[in-house]
Simulated scan of single mutants.
Amino acid sequence: MKNAALIFVLASIFSTFNVAQAEDVDPAVLKNVYDSTRNISGLITYCVDKGFLKSDSTVNAKKMVAYAAGMPGGLDTRDGDKNEAYGREGKGKGPDGKYESVESAAPQGVAAWCKGADEGVREGLKSVGL
Rank of each mutant, 00 (worst) to 15 (best):
A22W: 11
F14M: 09
S55C: 07
K93E: 07
I44H: 00
G42S: 06
L75D: 10
T37H: 01
A66T: 15
G73K: 05
R78T: 13
G51A: 07
V102F: 04
E84S: 03
N32W: 01
G94A: 13
L75P: 09
D118K: 05
V65P: 01
S36D: 06
F52D: 11
D76K: 08
P95T: 10
V65E: 04
G92S: 07
K50C: 15
A69R: 13
A105K: 13
K91H: 09
Q21E: 11
F52T: 09
D76E: 14
D56K: 10
N39K: 03
K62G: 10
D79I: 03
D26R: 12
D81T: 13
T45R: 05
K93C: 10
R78N: 10
G97A: 15
I44W: 01
R88M: 05
G109F: 02
Q108V: 15
G92Q: 03
V48W: 01
G87E: 00
S104P: 12
V48H: 07
G90P: 05
F17K: 02
K54V: 11
D81V: 13
Y67P: 01
P95K: 08
A111F: 08
D81Q: 14
E23D: 15
K54F: 12
S101L: 14
K82Q: 14
V25H: 08
T58L: 02
F14W: 09
D24P: 12
F52N: 09
S101V: 07
E103A: 15
I40T: 07
A105T: 15
I40G: 04
M64C: 06
G87C: 04
I40S: 04
A105L: 11
A22R: 14
T37D: 01
K50D: 11
T58A: 04
C114H: 06
F52L: 10
V59N: 08
S15G: 12
K31I: 07
N83S: 08
E84F: 01
G92I: 00
K62R: 12
R38W: 02
K91M: 07
A22Y: 14
A28S: 13
G42Q: 01
C114W: 00
L30G: 05
A20C: 11
D56W: 00
E84P: 04
K98N: 13
G92F: 02
A22N: 14
R78F: 11
N39Q: 05
K82T: 15
D24L: 12
S104M: 13
S36N: 09
T37R: 01
G90S: 07
S57R: 02
D79H: 07
G74P: 09
Y86C: 00
K115S: 10
P72Q: 12
G42Y: 00
L30H: 05
P72S: 09
A106H: 04
V25G: 06
L43T: 03
G80Y: 00
N18S: 15
